[in-house]
Computed example of a mutant assay.
Amino acid sequence: MPNIIREKSKWGQVLSIPASNVKELKTKLKQGWWLFMQQWAGTIFYMLIFFGILYFLIIRPQQKQQKRRQEMLNSLKVDDRVVLAGGLHGRITKIKDRTLMVRIADRVEVEVDKGGVAYVPGQEE
């Protein structure tokens, strides 16, 4: 009768393995793990490529656009001509922390949020 190794699994079952098969079993487990990792390596590789493309085609250009817009808003000064988000054209008469006073007609001034400026004519790319 060959030597039998008895081990208790984590679920409480007793496993009986012939001692001669232990080395073979360990080898198969290592090979199985290696095959499993090889299968997932391709998937992980393609996911990394996908996220790289996503970053360079969508995220990075959007960050650059936000940076240019913030620079444009920070560079606004009194007497600049601006076009507001609603399409109104005007000239800046006063700058506050978060708002601008824009003259859109003779004796007609409106207070708008800085984020309401669509662009400065002559500075758009």
Rank of each mutant, 00 (worst) to 15 (best):
S9Y: 01
K114A: 04
Q38C: 11
I59T: 15
I44N: 05
V110C: 02
H89K: 10
I5S: 02
R103K: 15
I5A: 06
E125N: 09
N3I: 09
T99V: 09
L15Q: 07
A85T: 13
F45I: 13
L35G: 06
E111P: 00
V82R: 01
G116S: 14
R103Q: 15
K114G: 04
D80F: 02
R107M: 08
G116I: 01
V102A: 01
P2Q: 12
L100Q: 04
S75F: 01
T27L: 13
A118K: 15
K64A: 13
F45P: 00
T93W: 00
Q38I: 11
W34C: 03
V82D: 03
W33N: 10
Q65N: 12
G42H: 10
L29C: 06
V120N: 00
Q70P: 00
V83W: 02
F56N: 14
R69S: 03
M37I: 11
V22R: 08
V117T: 06
Q13Y: 05
W11A: 11
P61T: 10
R81E: 12
S16F: 05
L84R: 09
L88H: 09
K64Y: 08
Y55W: 15
Q63V: 12
D97W: 03
D80Q: 01
R107H: 13
Y55H: 14
V120H: 00
E111V: 09
F36V: 01
Q65K: 15
T99Y: 12
W40L: 12
F51T: 15
M1S: 13
E109Y: 07
R68Q: 14
Y46D: 03
D97H: 09
F56Q: 14
K10G: 02
E7D: 03
F36A: 06
I49M: 11
G87C: 03
L54Q: 14
Q123S: 09
P61G: 08
I4G: 02
Q65A: 15
G32Q: 07
K94A: 09
A19R: 12
E109A: 04
G52H: 08
K77V: 08
I17N: 04
D80K: 00
I92R: 01
D113L: 11
P18C: 03
Q123H: 10
R6P: 00
T99H: 12
K28G: 02
K114L: 06
T99W: 05
A105L: 05
I58Q: 14
W40R: 15
I5K: 07
I49W: 10
R91E: 12
M101P: 00
E24Q: 14
F36N: 10
G42N: 11
N3F: 08
V78N: 04
P18F: 06
R98M: 03
K30D: 11
M47W: 12
R103S: 13
E7R: 10
Q31S: 11
S16D: 14
M1R: 08
K10V: 09
K8N: 05
G86L: 05
W40E: 13
L57K: 15
L25A: 07
T43C: 05
I58E: 14
G116Q: 14
W11N: 11
Q66P: 00
R103N: 05
G12R: 03
I95L: 13
G12D: 02
N21S: 14
R91F: 05
G122F: 03
D113W: 09
G52K: 06
I44F: 14
G116Y: 07
R69V: 02
G90S: 03
M37G: 00
V110M: 10
T93R: 13
E109W: 01
V22S: 05
V102K: 01
I44Y: 13
S16M: 11
V120G: 00
Q66F: 09
E109S: 07
